[in-house]
Amino acid sequence: MKSDQQIIAELKDESTKQAAFRALVSRYKERLYWHIRKIVLSHDDADDVLQNTFVKVWRNIEGFREESGLFTWLFRIATNESLTFISQKKKRAFISHEETNTYILENLETDPYFDGDDIQYRLQKAIARLPDKQRLVFNMRYYDDIKYQDMEKILETSAGALKASYHHAVKKIEDYLKSEE
């Protein structure tokens, strides 16, 4: 199995670029998909964003600086693409700042691929009400168990700020679940 460094080297060589890109997609498609899916919630949107992410990787591989690590770089692109996608959807739907997550909630309610019980549905509803960045940090910590040191590199934010975001997110989720009872 090729290492990330090998894949990067082959991606930068025109004669091996195509095959190396295929290998990269195979290796990271599922991890990136689930990361994106938790941000946009709907499968169709996640599919769009995942494709946008890989197209961007293909176009910008020349500018990739290897010190950041391939995994971190890919997650950063996927995160930016997801947040940009959501903000564009909100703009098109003329959703104001106060009702920012209406679109996300609708995605959750109409998603035919939701596969959880009532508790998980209520938890997802509570998460969907969070501001985008808190939601992102909560998902990465709670579902993916990503360490704050790694999150720092992906989101380019300090560990302190990330911990604070996670703390606020948990508090809001608890409050929402209490109010629902």
Partner: peptide, 15 residues
């Protein structure tokens, strides 16, 4: 309990 014990995956599936 659900919040205290992180689940292995999010409650979604794909086609």
């Amino acid at each position: 309990t659900e919040l205290q014990n992180p689940p292995s995956k999010a409650p979604f599936k794909v086609p």
